Structure formats: structure tokens, C-alpha cells
Simulated scan of single mutants.
Amino acid sequence: MKSLLKRMLRWLCGEYSIYVILTKACAEAQVPGSIPAGGTIVPVDREMVAASADPDIRAQSFYAGEGALGYGCRGPDGQLAALCFYWHGERYRKRNFWPLKEREAKLVEVITASSMRGKKIAPALIEASLHDVGQQGFERAYARVWHSNEPSLRAFQTAGWQRVATVIELHPFGRKKALRITRPARGT
């Protein structure tokens, strides 16, 4: 029965996406006193990411480049244990999922190496990187997280980010242009 209902919903709604939109003012970010697992936060570029020994980290190198601010957490062995990238300006306008104003950026990727997950590195990286993004002249950052990605949602919550909306996109009956529903979070 559940399978039939799923197939019917897929036919009716088509492809779909459900994202939670989160935000935090850069001025609210604090540099963590210490980074879990003995890590250090460093700016990263495409070459550093591409040279990583971890294939999941290495695969993120395309996020770097013009219009991107990249940050990594080096583990005690010196290897990149986690990454995050913010896009802004023209680079982000090509994606433009969530509208940004001047001096706003979007955190478009955060990943922790599988061997380092569960050590609270991601929230520390998100917080420290947001502080630096503020030092670069930005005032606010946004992120979108798949609605059921509990580890990412916890990382942003731990880093003090607030939910501002849920965005649902549907392609009913094979429609090419998405039908978009934006639902503000309670209290916003």
C-alpha cells in the first residue's frame, strides 16, 4: 500500500525537492576557542582540496574559484577533515536558489570526511568560517539543507543558525518549470 501511494504521489507531483533555509548574521559568529579533534581552520583553494587524500573531500574542488570563499579544517595529521564553501556575487547568481542581497553569501557546501564524522567538527567549521566571511565584508549568510538531513541540520543548529523558511519545489504532471512553495518559518 505504501509503495502504491508513493508511486501515485510521484506521478502527481513529479520530481520534488524540500529544503530548509537557514541564516545567521556574520557579526554574531564567534571564533571557537578550540576545534574538536585537534583541528585548525584554514582558508582553502582548489589545489589544496584537489590534493586531499580523502576522495570525498577531493571531489569538492569544483566549489572553489572566482566568487567562492573556501574553508577547511585540518585534522591533527594535517589532512583536510572537513570543508565548507560560500558563494557570492555572479558565481551564486547562476544558481540563485535563494535571493541574496548585497553583502550576503550562501554556504553552498559543507562536508566532513567520513573518518571524522560525529566529532562536532562541522559546527566549529561553520562558525569559524562565518566569522571570517564577516571579516571579508559580508553581513549575512544563508544555507539550504535537505529537509531530512539531520546531521547537517544539527550542525547548523549547533552553530546558532536559524530557520527562516522551507522551500518545496514540485514538477506536477511532468511540468518543466518547478512550482515553488516558500513557507516562512514560525516566528519570522
Results as ranks from 00 to 15, higher is better:
84 C>K: 00
20 V>N: 04
28 E>N: 12
83 L>G: 03
55 P>E: 14
16 Y>D: 10
62 F>N: 11
147 H>K: 02
154 R>H: 14
148 S>F: 14
53 A>K: 09
138 F>D: 01
113 A>T: 07
118 G>R: 04
77 D>K: 03
5 L>P: 01
139 E>A: 14
54 D>E: 09
31 V>E: 12
6 K>D: 14
53 A>V: 15
32 P>S: 09
128 A>T: 02
173 F>C: 05
74 R>D: 04
49 V>Y: 01
13 C>H: 11
154 R>S: 10
96 N>Q: 12
83 L>H: 06
182 T>H: 02
129 S>W: 05
50 A>L: 14
11 W>I: 15
162 Q>A: 09
136 Q>M: 06
56 D>T: 05
119 K>E: 11
27 A>R: 15
165 A>H: 03
10 R>L: 01
187 G>L: 10
31 V>W: 15
64 A>I: 01
95 R>I: 15
128 A>C: 04
52 S>C: 12
93 R>N: 08
121 I>N: 06
104 E>T: 03
15 E>Y: 09
170 L>H: 05
47 E>A: 14
148 S>L: 11
175 R>I: 07
69 L>V: 06
125 L>T: 03
5 L>M: 10
55 P>L: 03
184 P>T: 09
78 G>K: 06
97 F>T: 00
179 L>S: 05
169 E>H: 02
76 P>H: 10
75 G>M: 00
177 K>V: 12
76 P>M: 03
80 L>S: 02
83 L>C: 01
142 Y>H: 13
177 K>I: 11
11 W>G: 04
64 A>E: 11
36 P>N: 10
40 T>Y: 08
127 E>T: 06
177 K>A: 12
37 A>C: 07
167 V>M: 13
58 R>M: 05
156 F>N: 06
151 P>Y: 15
60 Q>N: 13
109 E>N: 10
11 W>D: 05
62 F>S: 13
147 H>T: 04
132 D>M: 07
100 L>D: 04
106 K>W: 08
162 Q>G: 09
132 D>W: 13
